[in-house]
Design a protein around this nucleic acid. Structure first.
Lengths: 129, 129
DNA sequence: CGGCATCCCGAGGGATACTG
DNA sequence: CAGTATCCCTCGGGATGCCG
């Protein structure tokens, strides 16, 4: 019983893993995790590095990631307060996968653009030789 | 110039890779891709296997995945028409990563639940010993 | 069976203003 | 600097009905 045989299943919509997957399957969450893999960063630094993210969304994203135990929030009582975000050990094991996904998209973008063009031209069946 | 040096960057919000990442960073898209890795499936079969997905959303998701060149749609002119979805070669290279993410969540769910409990109890700093 | 069309609602997220 | 608090509005996605 201690072993996980009939344990978690993301394909079951009542499984709690579904919620976690939904939070990870988020553009902003993936970008934040990917960026934190390299090094811990302060709030505004993180905001500047992630093009197009707003302050509100970054805060929300960081809170969720913190709640799930992927990100750690460290407050330093400097003159203007400094807050540094970093990956937890759990979060580090996760980012291996996350960054791979982002890299994959970048590496295969040309193929994707080609596919989009074909699709948009009505060529939805297999190309001729 | 033909080489990709200053090529694509998902952290640039004007980069086309950002849109693709956003479509992949989607709960339903990940589940569909993950399920298709095992075998090609018909529409309603796919719908039954993915708990909680509606017909509309599944259709949308499949169209996007098809447009980006990850999924192939095959129509068979049987009596009630049969439509089979499968991964393209490009899609197959992608799912390696996708399924890892789903598996990761399932494997680490216990740690995540623990982290959530700590967070919700106001214990947002490092645990003692 | 495998969709498309329509209506509709609630959450997500942008913009803006304010605070410790 | 690192947020919180509102307003507001889009749009994702559920429900339902119809079609080839």
């Amino acid at each position: 019983m201690n072993e996980e045989q009939l344990s978690y299943d993301v394909y079951d919509d009542r499984c709690p893993t579904r919620d976690v997957l939904a939070r990870l399957a988020d553009k902003w969450a993936l970008l934040v995790l990917g960026r934190l893999e390299r090094e811990p960063l302060r709030f505004n630094h993180l905001k500047r590095e992630i093009g197009g993210i707003t302050q509100k969304v970054l805060t929300q994203t960081l809170r969720r990631l913190e709640r799930d135990g992927f990100v750690s929030r460290e407050v330093y009582a400097t003159v203007p307060v400094t807050v540094e975000y970093s990956l937890t050990p759990l979060g580090k094991t996760l980012t291996k996968t996350v960054t791979i996904l982002a890299r994959w998209v970048e590496d295969n973008m040309d193929s994707i653009l080609q596919a989009q063009t074909n699709f948009d031209n009505g060529c939805r069946t297999v190309m001729p030789g």
